[in-house]
Amino acid sequence: MHTLHNLVSGPLVWLAFIIFIGGSIYKLVTMAKEAKKKDPLVYEYWDGNYAFRSILHWLTPFGSVNWRKNPVLTLVTFAFHISVILVPIFLLAHVLLWKESFDISWWYLPEAAADWMTLIVIFACIFFAGRRMIRKDVKYLTSSSDYWILAMVAAPFITGYWAHHHWPMYRLMYILHILSGEIMLAAIPFTRLSHMLYFVFTRGYIGSEFGAVRHARDW
């Protein structure tokens, strides 16, 4: 158990970050290069202002017609995405790890807030999974990988919550927490989680086309 702990909290952390950062850069650079060669129009029509206008509307809760048409999904989606990004970065326990290892630190979330946000992530994953099973159109689009991705995202939050509250077998859960967190991080550039990387570009591009060429709104 001890060596396992050392492994996941030592070399594997490095590996996960290297894969995440290196992989993301690699993906974005190869995409950018390929676009230059084969989709030069993306560069030609890209318009910073209109791209930003579109991105902003879609990053604002209820800022687009479709967000307004789906209020429950919109609330869950925004609560989920905010939590899934903020908790890992601003959790006190994580901040302390950075402090210990590199002597750098930053603001952290009050414990109760972090607790709630963790639960939000977990229940949002359940909500998304339920939606995949219940809504006919979403079910049709769903493949097993979609459930795996949800499980992959939920895992570090479930195990983290478990370990933090010292429920039975929390030591094991702690190891699983670190491991599943590493897996998720490393998977971002290479799975559909990469929507996180591409969002700015796909949204920005259609925003540019709609704004600068077509003089129409796209939200």
Partner: peptide, 12 residues
């Protein structure tokens, strides 16, 4: 790249 980005980032 455009097609790839569309296919890879569609979250179904």
């Amino acid at each position: 790249a455009r097609l790839k980005a569309y296919v890879e980032s569609c979250v179904h």
